[in-house]
């Protein structure tokens, strides 16, 4: 049984010119538990919007988004938030760590809204990503690569069913990008977590069991320049 299922979903936005622009239209997509899929697409191909719809941050205009048995489109916003807190991990291109918090606290935040905070598990995750010596460092004391490793640990903190990764290597040099990708994939495998990774980098294709071209998956006739800053 699939963990994530998208059926006939669409999303459109009102552009600055006052016209409705369709960003996403996907007939069908499925992701199984523990599976790792690369969604390949250029900037502006609607990939962030798609991930935000799966995460329940924005709602689809039509269709069905079934995540771990719940239809994200039909859930009320607070229920979507709760579902996200329990079932999803999110890795961003620009890390999105909170500067006021130490590494371990950033990881604890990843589990703060889904249930009980497990400091020991947060510590283990940071040890696993090679930051056992940096537990109490703040993000501004870390390198770019280290920041992304903290973000990866945070995404796994709530023992999610699915990790969404939005260009997680986009801001990293090749060496750190390889480390970060390896960590995401291996940690997801170790925890039985599915991974849906979005990237424009074609060199990642051979790292995944399944690669989908987002321009083919997304039937919306949108060009990168038409999204008005939305991607």
């Amino acid at each position: 049984m699939s963990l994530l299922s998208l059926k006939n979903i669409s999303k459109r936005y009102l552009s600055d010119r006052g016209e409705w622009t369709e960003i996403v239209r996907i007939s069908s997509f499925e992701l199984n538990s523990g599976e790792q899929v690369l969604l390949q697409g250029e900037s502006g191909s609607g990939k962030s919007t798609l991930l935000n719809m799966i995460a329940g941050i924005v709602t689809a205009d039509t269709g069905e988004i079934s995540l771990d048995g719940a239809d994200m489109r039909l859930l009320r916003e607070s229920a979507r938030d709760a579902h996200r807190a329990r079932s999803l991990g999110y890795v961003f291109q620009n890390f999105n760590l909170l500067d006021a918090y130490s590494c371990i606290e950033n990881v604890e935040l990843g589990m703060a809204f889904g249930g009980k905070t497990d400091v020991e598990f947060a510590r283990k995750l940071l040890e696993r990503v090679g930051l056992s010596e940096r537990l109490n460092y703040r993000p501004d004391q870390l390198s770019q690569g280290q920041k992304q490793r903290v973000a990866i640990a945070r995404a796994l903190a709530n023992r999610p069913k699915l990790v969404l990764a939005d260009e997680p290597t986009g801001n990293l040099d090749p060496s750190n990008a390889a480390i970060a990708l390896d960590l995401i994939q291996s940690l997801c495998r170790e925890n039985g977590t599915a991974l849906l990774l979005v990237s424009h980098n074609p060199s990642l294709r051979d790292k995944f069991e399944r690669t989908i071209d987002l321009m083919e998956l997304n039937e919306a006739s949108v060009s990168p320049t038409e999204t008005g800053g939305l991607s």
Binding site: I57, D81, A82, R84, Y90, N96, L98, A100, L109, A112
Partner: peptide, 16 residues
Amino acid sequence: KRDIAVLRALGARKRT
């Protein structure tokens, strides 16, 4: 705003 958006992305509800 970014910090709040991150908290929301981590599952914090609006009322939280």
